[in-house]
């Protein structure tokens, strides 16, 4: 059973891997054949060697940026979920806040980074964490609030027939109903947190973070190093995205394919 699942996973990853390898090879060939200048586009192989040569610097940078992205992400998720719960509980608050949140969400929050630098100081991590939190907060809030309120009326009616309290309805119906909405938001904001952190770093601050490694090396015309840093950043984004998928799987076993949730269960025949 496990073996077939693993085999299926690998088979489903196969095409993606193939396309990836083919893409990198093509890239390498195009750059070499057309003699594209280094500062326009370095070859994957030179990016790889810069990555290896600068590994300790890269590792430190990804750790610094990763810490900012993850802490901002967690705080933004927490704030978004808490506010969604509160606004669902008090309908009038919801009606006032949700349109506002949708409007704010449509504005480019990362553009606030220089202002946050002025507010929270440019040397610490707080300013960039605040940017990440602000970027993460709105999608989480909007989606969670939607999931908490868009419950099938039949389900509320059933709970009312049990004379269930609002709190019980929240716990037994609204929260489980909101999980898929929340998971969608999580898939969106997990990689977004890395993007937000890096863009925030473009506006200055300590030089040992991914965003600054990219800008400073690009400034010195060391484009292959900048590209190596970008590769590291995308790996970080991917890792967080994978984390979001795992959370989704674990929190919603009932959404797995038919039979997947209880492969160890041997049902009787229906009579």
């Amino acid at each position: 059973m496990i073996a077939t699942i693993v085999a299926k996973r690998i088979r489903s990853l196969g095409p993606a891997l193939l396309v990836g390898v083919a893409g990198l090879t093509l890239w390498e060939l195009v750059v070499r054949v057309f003699r594209i200048r280094e500062f326009l586009l370095p070859t994957p192989s030179s990016i790889r060697s810069e990555l290896v040569d600068n590994w300790s610097m890269m590792r430190h940078a990804v750790w610094e940026t990763g810490r900012i992205a993850v802490s901002g992400l967690l705080f933004g998720i927490f704030a978004g979920v808490v506010l969604a719960l509160v606004t669902t509980r008090f309908r009038s608050l919801n009606e006032g806040l949700t349109p506002l949140a949708v409007a704010v969400n449509a504005t480019p929050i990362v553009a606030l980074a220089p202002i946050f630098n002025a507010w929270f100081g440019i040397t610490g991590t707080l300013s960039n964490q605040a940017v990440v939190t602000a970027v993460v907060f709105f999608p989480v809030f909007i989606n969670s609030a939607k999931g908490l309120t868009e419950v099938h009326p039949d389900e509320i009616e059933l709970m009312r027939s049990y004379a269930a309290s609002d709190w019980t309805i929240m716990r037994e119906v609204r929260i489980p109903n909101a999980l898929p909405f929340f998971a969608n938001a999580l898939r969106l904001v997990a990689p977004l947190s890395v993007i937000a952190a890096i863009i925030a770093e473009y506006f200055g601050g300590p030089q040992d973070r991914i965003g600054n490694v990219i800008t400073s090396n690009a400034g010195l015309a060391r484009y292959d190093v900048a590209w190596a840093a970008i590769a590291v950043a995308s790996a970080l984004g991917l890792a967080l995205f994978a984390g979001a998928l795992i959370v989704e799987r674990v929190s919603m076993p009932w959404r797995l394919g038919v039979g997947g949730g209880d492969s160890n269960n041997n049902p009787g025949r229906e009579t």
Binding site: L158, S161, A163
Partner: peptide, 21 residues
């Protein structure tokens, strides 16, 4: 009577919770 849970109701639509076995 509802508050006292005097009745049980079977709705026209089964209305089971997807997340509960």
């Amino acid at each position: 009577a509802r508050v006292d849970q005097d009745y049980g109701m079977v709705f026209q639509h089964p209305g089971l919770f997807d997340w509960r076995r």
